Computed example of a mutant assay.
Amino acid sequence: MQFTFATASKILFATGAARRIPELAGTLGSRPCLVTGGHPERAQWLIDGLTKTLREPLVIPVSGEPDTEVASAAAKAAREAGCDVVIGLGGGSVMDTAKVVAALITNTDDIYEYLEVVGKGKPLTQRPVPLITVPTTSGTGSEVTANGVLLSREHGVKVSLRSTDMIADLAVIDPQLAASMPPKVTAATGMDALTQLMEAFVTHKSTPMTDALCREGLMRAATALPLAFEDGSDMSAREDMALAALLSGICLANAKLGAVHGFAAPIGGKSHAPHGAVCAALLPHVMEANLRALRERDPDSPSLHAYREVAVMLTADVACDAEDGAAWVRELCEGLSIPPLGELGVEKADFDLLADQAARASSMQGNPVELTRDELIGILEAAY
């Protein structure tokens, strides 16, 4: 047995914890850069708190899916402003941008020197400035992951800038911040968390530590996601989903993912569909394809046993088999009104390209079985 494990230096999880951000930021720096969503006025409470406690922050709003140009320009502005602590308040895209900004403040080469797949993938040579991540959704787990996902418009694909040095110094998880999420966003982000927990559990790169966290997260998400979708004010369900998302981020940072996320990056780059919705549309079909392939080509794989354990956790039926887990996920997606890929802007004409790009994606390396090109195309057709 041999593995490594890394996560945020400190995690603060509590309803109301966000009020402590200015005080905590002051222990890490004096000139804050605050990365927010496209409506920074919603973060005025934090802007005021930072201004009172430290200095007026440099505010960088991020609308939609961040790209390499946005991240590079934001890092340049933060560097020139003398920012020495970065705070990311928002969903996955905001926190990913914040991670990249913190990294590029001190690592000043062109961003493509560091990017995977479309760049040179060089390691960071300087430690990023201190980083605080504050999720306002419950899904991506980006608050504790080691990479920032950006769209490369030139290449039409989402890629990562990755380093364990990019894991946040402090992750502040306040479930109350997600209470205003509408049902559609609750469903998509929650399915992203569920997907990450499941893929990290069945991957051949899982570890005893990630397995333990995945089990906890899967059982909470299975119960809490439908409740949070039906009633966004259910704070018990919101807390469970915030924890499930946090655990999913820790697990994906320490184990590989799989074919769902292998597809999600090229699909997101091509169609700009929401990441969580894409994951949800794909998940039951990837599960089914993986199970067929494992039974045919690797019937003794530990991943088959892991899939059955997933099914037991999801269905609460100890007599079920692995395929029952996929059926449960399919029914959950129907209950959450998850749209198919065709309604998310994916074009059938792009299936060949998407399959080729997915096969080369870094996430695909963690899939429990190598899928053929026909199997990859079959997943897209089934999810369409």
Rank of each mutant, 00 (worst) to 15 (best):
residue 2 Q to L: 12
residue 9 S to D: 11
residue 11 I to M: 10
residue 11 I to A: 09
residue 15 T to P: 00
residue 22 P to V: 01
residue 23 E to P: 10
residue 25 A to W: 05
residue 36 T to I: 13
residue 38 G to H: 10
residue 41 E to Q: 04
residue 44 Q to I: 01
residue 48 D to L: 05
residue 58 L to R: 14
residue 59 V to L: 13
residue 67 D to A: 07
residue 73 A to K: 11
residue 81 A to C: 12
residue 85 V to P: 10
residue 88 G to A: 04
residue 89 L to F: 04
residue 93 S to D: 13
residue 97 T to K: 09
residue 102 A to M: 11
residue 105 I to P: 04
residue 105 I to V: 15
residue 109 D to E: 15
residue 112 Y to E: 09
residue 118 V to G: 00
residue 121 G to S: 15
residue 127 R to K: 15
residue 133 T to A: 14
residue 141 G to V: 07
residue 150 L to K: 00
residue 151 L to G: 00
residue 153 R to W: 00
residue 161 L to W: 04
residue 165 D to L: 12
residue 174 D to E: 07
residue 188 A to W: 15
residue 192 D to R: 12
residue 194 L to N: 09
residue 196 Q to I: 03
residue 199 E to W: 08
residue 206 S to Q: 08
residue 212 A to F: 06
residue 217 G to C: 12
residue 225 L to T: 01
residue 233 S to H: 15
residue 238 R to W: 02
residue 241 M to Y: 08
residue 247 L to D: 06
residue 247 L to F: 12
residue 255 A to L: 01
residue 259 A to N: 07
residue 275 H to P: 06
residue 275 H to F: 11
residue 284 P to W: 10
residue 285 H to Y: 11
residue 288 E to N: 13
residue 290 N to V: 09
residue 300 D to P: 00
residue 304 L to N: 02
residue 312 V to P: 04
residue 313 M to P: 00
residue 318 V to G: 00
residue 326 A to Q: 04
residue 332 L to W: 02
residue 337 S to Q: 09
residue 339 P to F: 10
residue 340 P to A: 11
residue 340 P to H: 09
residue 344 L to P: 06
residue 352 D to P: 00
residue 368 P to Q: 05
residue 378 G to I: 01
residue 380 L to W: 00
